[in-house]
């Protein structure tokens, strides 16, 4: 309880990095998200929880406009990054996605070498001036993703030849290599063993020093361990949003309570 109060205290002086107001998402006729209002705070881990199909991934994809690639998807409402509307006509989604990185639900490494997977982002964004710098970025990213020890001797082996959990950590390394301001993680630990999970959680905690992290998870324990803020989604509605400690110890909505105690979902 003590640590939770500590985190609560230093939350107060943090500003909202991203804000979402009255966000509606339709997939054709399917109204997938209804009136979602969330703030993603600076240097904070926000967890999205909720039963399967409630729209967590959909909302996450709104935050870096990955929904643009789905023809049937329509997003309404306002989402801002640093006060600027990311759905403004002048915004280039490519630039946005360099600032708001993403780790997907299913590991999706490129069919290239481990090194090239991690180096791809820095290369296209010109983040390394020379080979040595690039090597450094790759090593740092792989270390952050707790993968370095396992792959340092085979950086030029194909990334698709790794195990599922290793592939997911490779995707995390690839996402952090571009130093995004906000990192969106869609169930990053669903394919990981407890040790790798603990390492990723440590990484998330470390990333919090510089970035905002949004993590979707089905594990209540994980949400409680890593996040300072929690948002509970249910059937397209944002039911409750607040400090993690409050959500888990004293939920206001009965649906939240039944979900975290395991009665719905």
């Amino acid at each position: 309880m003590n640590d939770l109060r500590l985190t609560e205290r230093d939350l107060d002086n943090r500003t909202a990095r991203m804000t979402a107001r009255k966000v509606q998402v339709h997939y054709g006729q399917n109204h997938a998200l209804k009136d979602v209002d969330v703030d993603i705070l600076d240097k904070t881990v926000t967890a999205f929880i909720g039963p399967s199909g409630c729209g967590k991934s959909t909302f996450l994809r709104c935050l870096n406009r990955m929904n643009d690639t789905i023809a049937a998807c329509r997003v309404e409402g306002q989402i801002t990054l640093e006060g600027e509307d990311i759905y403004d006509r002048r915004v280039d989604p490519v630039q946005l996605r360099a600032k708001v990185g993403m780790v997907f639900q299913k590991p999706n490494p490129f069919p290239k070498s481990i090194y090239d997977n991690v180096a791809y982002g820095p290369r296209i964004h010109g983040l390394a001036r020379n080979r040595a710098e690039l090597d450094e970025v790759v090593e740092k990213s792989l270390r952050r993703a707790a993968l370095w020890a396992e792959v340092k001797d085979r950086l030029h082996a194909p990334g698709t030849g790794l195990s599922g959990g290793q592939q997911q950590r490779l995707c995390i390394a690839r996402a952090v290599a571009t130093e995004p301001e906000v990192l969106l993680m869609d169930e990053p630990c669903s394919a990981l063993d407890p040790i790798a999970t603990a390492q990723v959680e440590e990484l998330i905690d470390e990333l919090r020093e510089n970035f905002s992290v949004v993590i979707v998870t089905h594990s209540m324990q994980q949400a409680a361990r890593v996040s300072q803020k929690t948002a509970f989604f249910h059937m397209g509605h944002l039911v409750e949003h607040g400090d993690t400690a409050q959500i888990f110890t004293n939920p206001r909505d009965p649906r939240t309570e039944s979900y975290i105690t395991g009665r719905i979902g």
Binding site: K106, Y120, G121, H125
Partner: peptide, 27 residues
């Protein structure tokens, strides 16, 4: 070419052109 490859490239800020030239076309 699996769509997840396109998602992966777009997700780290590659343009559509880069996605196609670097990942989709070689595959």
């Amino acid at each position: 070419v699996p769509p997840s490859i396109r998602d992966a490239a777009l997700g780290i800020g590659a343009s559509r052109m880069q996605t196609v030239l670097h990942h989709v076309l070689p595959l």
